[in-house]
Every structure is written in C-alpha cells, then in structure tokens.
Amino acid sequence: MNQDKEKDKIENREKEKRELVIARLKILPSDKKLSVGSSGDFTRDELIEHVEKKDEIGKKIVEVQMEYLRLLKEGFFYERNAIGHEA
C-alpha cells in the first residue's frame, strides 16, 4: 500500500517535470533545431513529442532541463561559481 503510494508520488513528480519541460520547450524558436548527439536532430515540436512519449530522447531533454533548473540556485553564470567537470 505504502509502496503504491510512493510509486504514485514518483509518477506524479515525473509528470510534473514533463509538463514543466514541455512548457519551457514551447518557447524555443521554431527556426532552430537541436542536435542531440547520435539520437538525431530535432525541431521544437519534435522535442515536445519525444518528451510526451517518455522515450530516451525525451528523458534526456527532461534531464538536461531539470539539471539546469537545479543549478540556477548555484549561480553558475557568475565566474566565481562556474561549474565545470574534470575527471
């Protein structure tokens, strides 16, 4: 019972993320395309479709967008707080 509740909670959260990302994608200019590595090149509307389908491309776009939103609080746009990654 608790597991079902937890599962519903997670699914709702994922749904909220998708809705948020779709709303954000809608403001991408229609004359631009996005190359997402080996997955291909996509227009704004195609990206939205993929997010709605919850496929690998859609999941990646959600991941990229949510990572960005989470990093906003770190102030990555200011040099002092710049975030990079080195192994």
Binding site: E16, E19, L20, A23, R24, L69, L72, F77
Partner: peptide, 22 residues
C-alpha cells in the same frame, strides 16, 4: 535569495506549472 541572484534574462523563464498553467 536565489531570485535576487538571478540574471534579469532568467527571471522571465518558466519554472513551474501552477494549476495547469506555466
């Protein structure tokens, strides 16, 4: 605190869906 530190261009970005609206 977070809002105060956001560049002006970012403040116009959608961050949430509330009652079905961005």
């Amino acid at each position: 605190k977070v809002y105060a530190n956001l560049p002006l261009g970012i403040r116009e970005e959608i961050i949430l869906i509330l009652e079905g609206k961005p």
